[in-house]
């Protein structure tokens, strides 16, 4: 096992050295994506299990090395392909590098919350301290400034606060982890952001259907226009249902990748000009971009959360109000 790991690490190193100068940037961009090897703190280790669904059955391998030993599949340019015909398997459900980074992020957030939860259980009326205070400030901000004004109902706010809080802290933590040297940005991959947008899509439409009924939801597809405009409005609104999560997906992914790419370009300038005098400028700008990225980490977590809340508010429309009023008056 250990020899297999060191073997792969060695091959990885060889792999790095083999890259021609013109391919450095494309290769580094490739590195921003997902991998089958665990890529953490500047080390690459081949410990992640490969899970494939192909040809109507499941394939499990301990790691990439074990998979290649078995001879049925091999890794080409970071992708698992069949040895037979060089095509991808039906579904590659392997635990990848970014999945591990998501776990790290999850564990950090859960640890912080569970630790502060202990304090809340001990004395709910005590003033919050330390990290508990920071979490509480953010949670209260999300509740009072993001969720409540958009959902416009105390019941829905109470019910959906866990989702929005989870969403915000998940994105924020993954963003911030990505800023640490030697770590990867899980939110800088379309897969992650797409999945989060899918949850947003489910919450938006699920909540809308539950609150205003399927008829209300269908009525919303008219976008408030007269019925004879339905042939135009309905396709647009249906498209709108999907553009919202798509925008969420791309916005977060692009923001988290862009900073990294700019940093890469700035540092790349030094090598492009082959001059040490470019370095102060590159480093200066890099620090600026790095700080900007720190801001963007918070900003994008906030934007993803508030936009989801806004979309939920739009999907419910004013019906929630009426519904609520009817309930309270009867």
């Amino acid at each position: 096992m250990s020899s297999a790991v060191s073997d792969t690490v060695a091959s990885q190193h060889r792999h790095h050295e083999d890259i021609p100068p013109s391919q450095v940037i494309p290769h580094l961009l490739e590195e921003l994506g997902d991998h089958h090897e665990l890529n953490i703190a500047f080390t690459t280790t081949d410990v992640l299990p490969i899970i494939l669904y192909d040809g109507g059955r499941w394939h499990f391998y301990q790691n990439v090395h074990a998979m290649e030993q078995a001879g049925e599949y091999r890794l080409v340019k970071g992708h698992v392909v069949r040895v037979q015909d060089g095509k991808s398997p039906t579904l590659d459900l392997s635990v990848t590098n970014l999945v591990v980074f998501q776990w790290i992020g999850m564990l950090i957030v859960l640890a912080l919350f569970v630790l502060s939860a202990r304090r809340y259980r001990r004395d709910p009326l005590a003033p919050p301290r330390g990290i508990q205070n920071a979490i509480e400030a953010l949670v209260v901000y999300i509740r009072d400034e993001v969720v409540r004004p958009n959902l416009r109902s105390e019941r829905l706010t109470r019910q959906f606060m866990p989702y929005f809080v989870a969403l915000f802290f998940f994105i924020l933590t993954l963003n911030l982890i990505g800023l640490l040297p030697g770590m990867h940005t899980a939110t800088g991959a379309i897969g992650t952001t797409a999945a989060l947008a899918i949850t947003a899509f489910l919450v938006i439409n699920g909540l809308a259907i539950r609150e205003i009924g399927i008829r209300g939801w269908l009525h919303h597809l008219l976008g408030g226009a007269p019925v004879y405009l339905a042939p135009i409005m309905v396709p647009i609104e249906i498209l709108g249902l999907f553009t919202k999560p798509f925008a969420l997906t791309v916005r977060l992914f692009a923001n988290m990748s862009a900073g990294h790419i700019i940093l890469l370009s700035l540092i790349g300038l030094i090598f492009y000009f082959r001059s040490i005098f470019v370095a102060p400028m590159s480093v200066g700008f890099s620090i600026f971009i790095y700080l900007l990225e720190t801001l963007v980490c918070f900003l994008q977590a906030y934007i993803f959360t508030i936009l989801t809340a806004v979309f939920v508010g739009l999907a419910i429309g004013d019906h929630a109000h009426e519904h609520h009023a009817e309930q309270s008056s009867s």
Binding site: L93, F113, A166, G191
Partner: peptide
């Protein structure tokens, strides 16, 4: 990658469940 999407959905659901039950509720 569909794999990453599915994993993220699994991770996020699990995380949301634990957070809502053990972290957020007391708060």
């Amino acid at each position: 990658s569909p794999g990453l999407i599915i994993w993220t959905l699994i991770n996020f659901s699990l995380y949301l469940f634990i957070l809502a039950k053990f972290g957020f509720k007391p708060l």
